[in-house]
Every structure is written in C-alpha cells, then in structure tokens.
C-alpha cells in the first residue's frame, strides 16, 4: 500500500511568506510537494471560514503564514490576524475540531529555509494524524450520498 500523503493547504500573505516560499524555490531547497499554496494580500484577509472550507473540501492539514510582527506590509494586519487565530483556535478546540491540523507560522521573505522546514514538519505531523475523516465526512454525508 502506498504511503498516506496528506493534502495540505497553505494560506499565505503576499508580502512575506509567499515571497519566502519563492525564495525556497529559487534557492533550490527541496520540500514536500503536497502543499497547495494560496496567496492573500495579507494575513488579515485570511478568514477563518476559508480554513473550514479547506477542511470541508478535503484538506487534511492547513498552514497559515504571514509576516513577522511589526513587518506587516499594512502595519497591523498580522496583529489582527494573531488575535483572530487565538480565538479561532480556542473555538475549534471547544468544538472538537483538531487544532493540531492547523499550523500557524511567521515566515519572512528572507526565510526560504524556514518555509521548507515548516512545510516538511507539518507534512510529517499530518501524516501521523492521518486523513481528516471526521470533517470530510461531515461535509459529504447525508444529502451528497
């Protein structure tokens, strides 16, 4: 049997992490290819509903990443995002949504190596957790059958 390969969705901001991921590529650093990167103007724009949508659409794990504090292109987008993530994580936890499957990070445009490391370790972690069947079932059950 072939090894389980998690579907990973990464929500990243345009100015830091996306550029960082670009650097990973141009530096020819190898990292897991099962991550689908989605670019946003800012972490402040990454709505938590997008995360639940990703799970519902079949993601097994999610990475959310943006500029380090004080580096936000729009000054405070990531500060707002940070709070939102804190609250969202708490809500997920309370509702039994597996927060181990959502990894948050700060990756700057200069941190190509860090990005590779984040994705690789996330991949390992999600592999261990297996497919996120609970949520996938939720979104397909009943009427889709």
């Amino acid at each position: 049997m072939s090894e389980f390969e998690p579907k990973i969705v990464a929500f990243v901001c345009n100015w830091c992490t996306y550029a960082g991921a670009d650097l990973t590529g141009t530096s020819r650093i190898k990292y897991s290819s099962n991550v689908r990167i989605i670019r946003f103007p800012c972490t402040g724009r990454i709505d938590y509903m997008l995360l639940t949508k990703a799970f519902a659409s079949g993601a097994d794990g999610i990475i959310v990443s943006g500029c380090h504090p004080n580096d936000c292109h729009y000054t405070s987008g990531n500060f707002h995002a940070r709070r939102r993530w804190m609250v969202f994580r708490r809500l997920c936890d309370f509702m039994g949504i597996d927060t181990r499957r959502i990894i948050f990070s700060w990756v700057s445009a200069a941190e190509g190596a860090k990005w590779a490391q984040i994705v690789n370790s996330a991949n390992e972690e999600f592999k261990k957790l297996g497919p996120y069947e609970n949520y996938h079932k939720l979104s397909t059950q009943e009427i889709f059958e």
Partner: peptide
C-alpha cells in the same frame, strides 16, 4: 477582535 496589542500571546505560532 478589532483591536490588538503588541504582546498578544503567540506561543502557538511557529
């Protein structure tokens, strides 16, 4: 959720 401080916890962020 529409305010923040510079010292909000981020021990969960890598």
């Amino acid at each position: 959720l529409s305010s923040y401080t510079n010292v909000d916890k981020e021990n969960f962020i890598k």
